[in-house]
């Protein structure tokens, strides 16, 4: 049963050997040349399964992988019962929101300590499971990287996700994320990464930070 037709992949809820599982299928994209399309799909399938595994080693909950099929670009993984952070965040009280954001920051910190870059940190890719823990999904755009730049971009994307979906609380949420992040990675590394975020922002188009004033 198709439960989500995303841009990059379709997510099916299936019964697999008596278990409820998620099948993530990366569909061929007709708009791309087949050479480009096949390269991207198989590369992302491999990378996603590797990163889902690495994240667990870093102490971040991700779905279990049951099967990977490179011919069809398919991953069969555990179905996480829960709700997307995107759906709950705006309805939360300030304290709840800050607590959740703080936890998210710690988890991103754990990933970055192991040089795991998620690549698409949005609140739709974080699931609050039944026991109240956050499970990270969709590592399709992730990578392993020691670069400060990748970590900075990763957090910058998180900030941008807050700004586009939770714009009313973007500032406080991102601040709490950075606090959690700092707690996890330590002040020294956090300083470097946060410094890089503002550098990345200044590089962007028509960014008010360049003018030395605070962005609304």
């Amino acid at each position: 049963m198709l439960i989500k037709k995303g841009a990059e992949a379709s997510i099916f809820l299936e019964d697999w050997q008596g278990q409820k599982v998620i099948m993530k299928h990366r569909l061929p994209k007709k708009y791309r040349l087949p050479q480009i399309d096949e390269r991207i799909r198989s590369y992302r399938t491999i990378r996603e399964s590797q990163l889902l595994h690495c994240a667990k080693e870093a102490g971040v909950a991700t779905p279990m992988i049951y099967s990977v099929d490179l011919v069809d670009s398919n991953i069969i993984m555990e179905f996480i019962e829960g709700i997307q952070v995107k759906q709950v965040l705006n309805g939360y009280s300030t304290e709840e929101r800050q607590h959740l954001s703080n936890c998210i920051g710690k988890l991103i910190g754990s990933l970055h300590l192991h040089d795991i870059i998620h690549g698409d940190l949005t609140t739709s890719n974080m699931i609050l499971n039944e026991s109240g823990n956050i499970v990270f999904v969709d590592f399709g755009l992730g990578e392993i990287s020691v670069e400060l730049e990748s970590k900075g971009v990763d957090l910058h994307l998180m900030k941008r996700a807050f700004q586009s979906i939770h714009f009313r609380y973007a500032e406080e949420c991102f601040k709490a994320v950075l606090e959690g992040y700092t707690k996890m990675v330590g002040v020294e590394m956090a300083k470097k990464v946060i410094g890089r975020i503002s550098e990345i922002e200044r590089r962007g188009r028509y960014v008010s930070e360049r003018k030395g004033r605070v962005q609304r």
């Binding site: 841009a7 990059e8 994209k29 708009y31």
Partner: peptide, 18 residues
């Protein structure tokens, strides 16, 4: 063209889905 436009179409598709 092929690579750059694929990138553009992909992010547009993501925004649409989103």
């Amino acid at each position: 063209q092929e690579v750059a436009f694929s990138m553009l179409t992909e992010v547009t598709e993501r925004a649409l889905a989103h």
